[in-house]
Design a protein around this nucleic acid. Sequence first.
DNA 1: CAATTATATAAGCAAGCACTTATATATATA
DNA 2: TATATATATAAGTGCTTGCTTATATAATTG
Lengths: 115, 115
Amino acid sequence: MTTINTIDVEKGSIVLKLLGDKTRLSIVSLLMHDECCVCELVEILEMSQPSISQHVKKLKAAEIVKERRQGQWIFCRVNTESEIFSLVKSIMIHFPEQREKIKDLEIKGLRVCCN
Amino acid sequence: MTTINTIDVEKGSIVLKLLGDKTRLSIVSLLMHDECCVCELVEILEMSQPSISQHVKKLKAAEIVKERRQGQWIFCRVNTESEIFSLVKSIMIHFPEQREKIKDLEIKGLRVCCN
DNA sequence: CAATTATATAAGCAAGCACTTATATATATA
DNA sequence: TATATATATAAGTGCTTGCTTATATAATTG
């Protein structure tokens, strides 16, 4: 029998509250399979840059996502080293993949990492 | 390869937002292994009756929990028939079991279903 | 160095939320 | 039928949240 490391309710509820927002859930869903920079998220989600920036900041604070700077861009990805990653992963498998959204960006020539 | 029925972001974020509250997360965690009536939740969580009642109402509206009236008591349990149950289950396995909380109630003679 | 592009931050605001207190409803029982 | 117990609901309140606009910072490029 396999056992899972449990997360305490206090910490877990913070993660769930953060993922309980459509925009943030979409961001994490996008990042599950690809690295994305903030400007790509702005493009895909059709939201203002400050709004996306604030959401990413919250996700980072909760260790749900990680950032990496490359030149003027900040690339975001899911923080797979975090204590809460197993919870995040368990949740995200229930949502549709977003690969096409990123494919669409590539087709439009708006994908940053293609430069 | 096994596939999972996906949930749309709109619907899923509602579930996550609801579970993103410490009290509601505790309620669902308690209900994962036992049926409980509202007054037992009030006792265990040490919160006011209206507050618990309002939380349960929200969980019911989102089809996370179900109710069953027996006399003057309303017994709550997790709605395992719901479309979103697989998501709920995936989440709840990450939190510690709450069986002892209910055992404690039994010891104190406050368990309703023992009557 | 000036202009451009990407991102972050600050301040303000309207909506949502979780509680409270007071009261209503529903069932059980003497 | 009156009282007690369980639960629901309504209204009020302060805190939180997600956006907006404006501005700051940081890296790039001509």
